[in-house]
């Protein structure tokens, strides 16, 4: 087990490094940079020599390799760089924006799981075939809905038509409802599909009819026998969907005009603020990698067969 853990952590670090390197190369390959945008502005009236001097002070005149090593070293020591456009350390920017996004993403994910489980369980408990089909086809509907469109429709319906939630400066928890829904619905769809599918698979297993032969009812079967077996494939897909969650949060924040990492990303792209983008990419990769690492470590707890068996296995 310790060697397995070490291996998985090593893999995770490798992924992080790759994400860092790739984003670095991509950001450098883009034409222009934040320094030029900020200081070439005619209003500032700086001469080319002065601009070159400023660039040198940021280390932007060094070769790419040196810049890469420099930035990598900084990241490793926890220094995420300096935002040129906002003139504050990137770390500070992240610190102010992360909590709002974390709250949105966390709640969005929880809502997605609830929705998915709800759909799967209701579909399985439905007494009529048509009802079951109707519930089971919800995910296909959800998955084909674009996030930005869904956000706009929700605002239209709940804020403008029904006037349930104010658009401007809503109370904190009320303001979260629509963005969380917007984020949760498209993510719940693949989750529900996988869950439905694996529940179906488990329900055809012989041990299910054996349990029924002991007098178990359908709800009992779903809770005691199906849930844990169907969890494994769902966990895998949940880990992958986490990446979607981060992307979805960016769009959702933009649509609802909420401050957070999404808005920060959007501004950084507008200003070509490479160091901010670099930090956001690495942060997103880190979250993704850690979540999937945790899921990998949860597997053996869910399925005892994945533990290294020491007992007799004749």
């Amino acid at each position: 087990m310790p060697s397995y853990l070490a291996g998985r952590i090593g893999q995770a670090l490798l992924v992080l490094w790759a994400a860092f390197t790739l984003s670095f190369i991509l950001l450098q390959a883009l034409p222009g940079d934040a320094l030029l945008i900020k200081y070439q502005n005619p209003d500032m009236g700086l001469s080319p020599e002065q601009i070159a001097e400023i660039r040198a002070s940021y280390g932007a005149d060094q070769s790419l390799v040196l810049q890469y090593l420099h930035t990598l070293g900084n990241f490793l020591t926890g220094n995420l760089g300096y935002s040129v456009s906002a003139s504050v350390p990137v770390l500070d920017q992240l610190a102010t924006n992360l909590p709002a996004t974390a709250r949105l993403a966390g709640l969005g994910f929880a809502a997605a799981v609830l929705l998915a489980v709800g759909i799967a369980v209701l579909a399985n408990l439905a007494r009529f075939a048509w009802l079951r089909t109707a519930i089971a086809s919800l995910p296909s509907l959800f998955i084909s809905v674009p996030v930005f469109w869904l956000g706009i429709v929700l605002i239209q319906v709940f804020s403008f038509r029904l006037k349930l939630i104010p658009v401007i400066n809503p109370p904190e928890w009320q303001g979260l409802i629509l963005p969380v829904l917007t984020l949760a619905i498209p993510i719940s769809a693949p989750l529900a599909q996988v869950l439905l599918r694996s529940m179906d698979d488990v329900l055809t297993q012989p041990f299910i009819s054996v349990a029924r032969a002991r007098g178990a009812s359908l709800p009992w079967i779903l809770w005691h026998h199906v849930a844990r077996n169907a969890l494994l494939p769902t966990l895998t897909i949940a880990g992958i969907l986490f990446g979607e969650l981060i992307g979805g949060a960016v769009v959702t924040e933009t649509v609802f005009g909420r401050s957070g990492l999404g808005q920060l990303t959007q501004q950084a792209v507008d200003n070509q603020d490479a160091s901010v983008l670099q930090a956001i990419v690495v942060l997103a990769a880190a979250v993704f990698v850690v979540v999937n690492l945790i899921i990998d470590l949860i597997y053996p707890l869910v399925d005892p067969r994945l533990k290294k068996s020491l007992g007799a296995n004749a």
Partner: peptide
Amino acid sequence: VRGSRIGLIPQDPTSSLNPVK
């Protein structure tokens, strides 16, 4: 009645047991 008055011994002992219980 199932399980209390009628017991079933199934065919395949491998697939007839829930692997995670």
